[in-house]
Amino acid sequence: MKDLSLHILDIAENSIRGKATQLAIEIVQSRTNDMLTIKIADNGTGIPADRLETVTDPFYTTRTTRKMGLGLPLLQMNAEMADGSLTINSTEGVGTKVIVNFRLSHLNRQPLGDVAGVVVGLAASYENVNLTFNFETDKGTYQLISHDIKTILDGHPMSDPQIMEALSEMIRENLKDLEITQ
């Protein structure tokens, strides 16, 4: 993965496959603590306790179409390379929460990438999933809830490219005010 937004996209796709209807993506960037934290929480099927150990094993997957599952292991590796860590909390039938943190100033920390585009892509593709996006920096916070957008659009599909571009722009502009660091 070239940047952290692509990791977020990847992990969020896991939630979708896990039949989530609520998905929360939270990014906290703190210059004061020199820390970047990403949390992805869903209300999907959850991971059975005896499998939690194996999800970060690259040769473990629940899929039958291929033999490996690299999403979580790659993210864990990138976090550890940047003085960070990855934690997964999951309860079967309740949901899963992936928390990953990085040292913000670490040379090996990947850039954030196009977070706005990722959030819009997810919201537009899975309109039935209520996606909450939170971004917090030392300057303040920004929140967006996909079902609010859905209400405003009033039946017009979010996956219309005109809407997607406008939404990405809206998020980007708001994140700019929060002084995000790539």
Binding site: I152, I163, M170, E173
Partner: peptide
């Protein structure tokens, strides 16, 4: 104009509705 708030988005939505765009297809 730049879209910054949900109100801007609402305006865009109204414009799209007026335009011939996806109106017939949206449903």
């Amino acid at each position: 104009t730049k879209i910054r708030t949900l109100d801007d988005l609402r305006n865009l939505r109204t414009n799209l509705r007026q335009g011939m765009d996806m109106r017939e297809n949206a449903d």
